[in-house]
Amino acid sequence: MMKINSICIIDDDPIVVFGIRKMLNSILTYDELHTYGNGKLALDGITEMVNSNQGPPDLIFLDINMPIMDGWQFLKEFIDIPIEHGVRINIITSSIDSYDQKNWELYKTKTHHTLTYNRKPLRKDDLIKMSKVA
């Protein structure tokens, strides 16, 4: 079984958080798992993790459509946090708006982090692929 140090799930829908957590439990082990209801909470949490020498998470699941700070606003701030190694960020959304797809393509060019774009619903097989940390 894969072993990952730290995982973040950022989504305002508790059912999605529940689902991801449940599927992750069956395919890998991890030391820490943090969940945040919106981008703002996540940004604050991760910034604190980085500042406290604990280091950033290895794997992030990021919803786009959230209150207060959405996925894109989160990404904009996140890529400015000085993190040396690449973090794998899996965008998961039910959006079919081409704007989101384009935004993803734009952000991919702006960061050294690994950025994937995935549509809900998520399956276990998808999650196995998404959990392959570089």
């Binding site: 059912i15 459509n65 809900k120 619903p121 998520l122």
Partner: peptide, 12 residues
């Protein structure tokens, strides 16, 4: 978007 997010949840 809204219908998809609900149906995605159903499916999962």
């Amino acid at each position: 978007h809204n219908l998809r997010s609900h149906t995605a949840n159903f499916s999962m």
